[in-house]
Design a protein around this nucleic acid. Structure first.
Lengths: 125, 125
DNA sequence: CAACTATATAACTAGATGGTAGTATAGTTG
DNA sequence: CAACTATACTACCATCTAGTTATATAGTTG
């Protein structure tokens, strides 16, 4: 990307795709689907979210083309349609890991200072 | 990812990172920064957004650790801190391309049938 | 220090989004 | 067809977010 100036429409599409991944429940759903397809009930169980909520998020993932569905009797099975989402998650995880590692290494070696009221006067940033 | 059941906190962090990329203005900013650092004024010019808006988005990207800033006199220069964002965008773009290609190939070969009646033959971008 | 420039922040508004409760639909089974 | 089960949808509320305008801050220059 970024080699060519993407159109506004394309930009919005890319942003939308990122937004689809920008919710912990949806990430949990994808994670639960990674080993293979699951019914809605199983996904409800796996995520701990309500049925209505899971269903709603699944529709979103479906419309985005990230998952696909298949009906079998009373059950509906969802599965990953675009496995690149995992690649995306991997990159983000790596990114976060590095981010926090770097943040730690910038701290004054007092291992108890973190997260809550961290970042002493030091850097002006 | 998905090999281990990430904690809720981690999940939220990953989701948040995706959300940071889930806005077209921020994507434009990143795109504008890809060749190298730029001042806020240049970014305002490059994106066409208002100064206040650009500033706001930049703070968001800054806090997320995606960009970094450097002051020089009156000017503040922003640059990419975590280049993996481009990797992420590439993956998404590929994903979208495939998605649309597949969608097209599923249609009944009538080239005029599309999203809104958009997308003339020429460039796909 | 006064006037000026570049950037950041505050307060506000309109629209999007996530969650829930309740209901509707599709499919099964007696 | 009635009762039942699994999933989807609707309406609603609370919260968040992007954008705007106006103002504040940091740094420069006369």
């Amino acid at each position: 990307m970024a080699s060519k100036p993407l159109s506004d429409k394309t930009m919005e599409l890319v942003a939308e795709r990122f937004r689809v991944l920008g919710d912990p429940v949806r990430l949990r759903l994808l994670q639960a689907l990674e080993p293979g397809e699951k019914s809605v009930a199983e996904l409800v169980e796996a995520t701990g979210a309500s049925q209505a909520n899971v269903s709603k998020h699944l529709q979103l993932l479906l419309r985005a083309g990230v998952v696909e569905r298949r009906r079998e009797g009373l059950f509906v099975y969802y599965s990953i349609r675009d496995a690149r989402v995992f690649q995306l998650c991997d990159v983000v995880c790596g990114s976060l890991a590095e981010h926090y590692a770097r943040e730690l290494s910038e701290l004054p070696a007092t291992p108890a200072t973190r997260t809550k009221r961290a970042r002493r006067p030091g850097r002006s940033n």
